[in-house]
Amino acid sequence: MGLFKKNPFGHILFLKKWLIRIFGALTHRRFRGFNELQIEGSEIIKDLPDSNVLFISNHQTYFADVVSMFHVFNASLSGRTDSIKNLGYIWNPKLNIYYVAAKETMKAGLLPKILAYMGSISIERTWRSEGKDVKRQVKMSDISNIGKALDDGWVITFPQGTTTPFKPVRKGTAHIIKKYQPIVVPIVIDGFRRSFDKKGLRIKKKNILQSFEIKKPLEIDYENESFDDIVKKIEYAIEQHPSFLKVISKKELEALDELNKKREW
């Protein structure tokens, strides 16, 4: 690679590679040390094409969720199965991984700006700004930037647009899926809310078993499925559909209690 070769967003790849290496080294123990990341389904990553892949996930912290995905994706591509053991995988990271984030979040301080350089597609939220509810039109440049990122590589998005669980999935994700027809890979994470603060920068509690499940790509009829159909499919895939809030039986509660005991290994 040329020393000053850039990606479609003007970021110098050499600099981006070193930022990923440094932050990868600094954050590794957050997922394998202070806490333990239990991964399922990483074999799916190895079979994906180099571009036009959209990862959809539930959201628990601002930054730790994305950082864990950088670790898991790169470890999987380097031949590890359901493991981020040995940090050598971060030396030659995949440089065309992007993630969708709120513009105001990525401008709030030096660290978010550095993290943004590592792959953020910063967009203006249409429903919330500076802690207040708003209503504004979607910026077409935001949509086209997501399309540009999909054309170049992989994109991570959190379709609820918030770290609050069981909030509705935003229709914007369905619009992107219909428009660009990517391979859509669901991810379900858990344990991050307990182990990190809301921003995902500070370790709140140690010895938490964090789970990270990669599911098979969704089967989507891009031409005939409605936006509402795709939204519902996303909600079920990332386990955020309201039906997951059903009354839990005594047997399920006991099983959940046993799982929580295992989380504090």
Rank of each mutant, 00 (worst) to 15 (best):
P159L: 04
D152Q: 03
T164L: 08
V72G: 03
T173E: 09
H59N: 07
F244D: 08
R29Y: 14
F63I: 12
D197Q: 01
A64W: 06
I234C: 02
Q60Y: 05
I56R: 09
K216Y: 12
K107T: 11
I90L: 09
T126M: 10
H241R: 02
A149T: 01
R30A: 11
Y99E: 14
D190Q: 01
S68A: 15
N52K: 04
I143D: 14
R125L: 04
E36S: 13
K246S: 15
Y62R: 03
A25V: 14
F73V: 15
K216A: 13
G131E: 08
S195G: 11
V53A: 02
H59D: 10
F70L: 13
F244E: 13
F196D: 09
V100W: 03
E43C: 07
D50T: 07
A108N: 15
G191V: 03
H11Y: 02
V138Y: 11
G109E: 14
I114D: 05
I248C: 01
S249E: 10
S249V: 03
F31L: 02
N52G: 02
V53E: 07
K261V: 08
E36D: 07
T164R: 07
K215A: 04
F55N: 01
R263G: 01
E252K: 08
K251L: 12
E223M: 02
M140D: 13
H59I: 03
W154S: 04
V231T: 14
P186A: 02
H11M: 12
R128Y: 11
G2E: 11
N35T: 12
I187V: 14
K261C: 03
L95P: 07
R125I: 02
I189A: 10
F23Y: 15
S120D: 14
I176P: 06
S195T: 10
E225W: 01
K179E: 12
E223P: 00
K199W: 11
I248S: 14
H11V: 13
L259D: 13
M1T: 11
L111W: 02
G119T: 02
P49A: 01
K261I: 06
I146P: 00
M106E: 12
K167T: 07
I230L: 00
K94Q: 08
T163V: 14
G109T: 02
V100I: 15
I121S: 13
F192H: 09
N207Q: 07
G79P: 04
S120E: 09
Q137D: 15
T173L: 04
K198M: 15
K135M: 09
K16D: 08
P8T: 05
F14Q: 03
R30H: 08
A64C: 09
T173A: 13
P112Y: 05
L3K: 12
N7S: 03
G24L: 12
F4V: 13
N86E: 11
T164M: 09
K179W: 13
D82R: 04
L259K: 15
L110I: 13
S249L: 07
Y89H: 05
I234A: 01
P165L: 00
K179I: 07
D257N: 07
F73N: 05
I176N: 02
E258M: 09
Y89Q: 05
M118G: 14
Y99S: 03
K6E: 11
A64G: 05
L201H: 06
E225C: 00
E225L: 00
S57Q: 04
G109V: 03
R128A: 15
N86Y: 15
M69H: 10
D152S: 10
N92C: 05
A149Q: 04
D65T: 00
S83A: 04
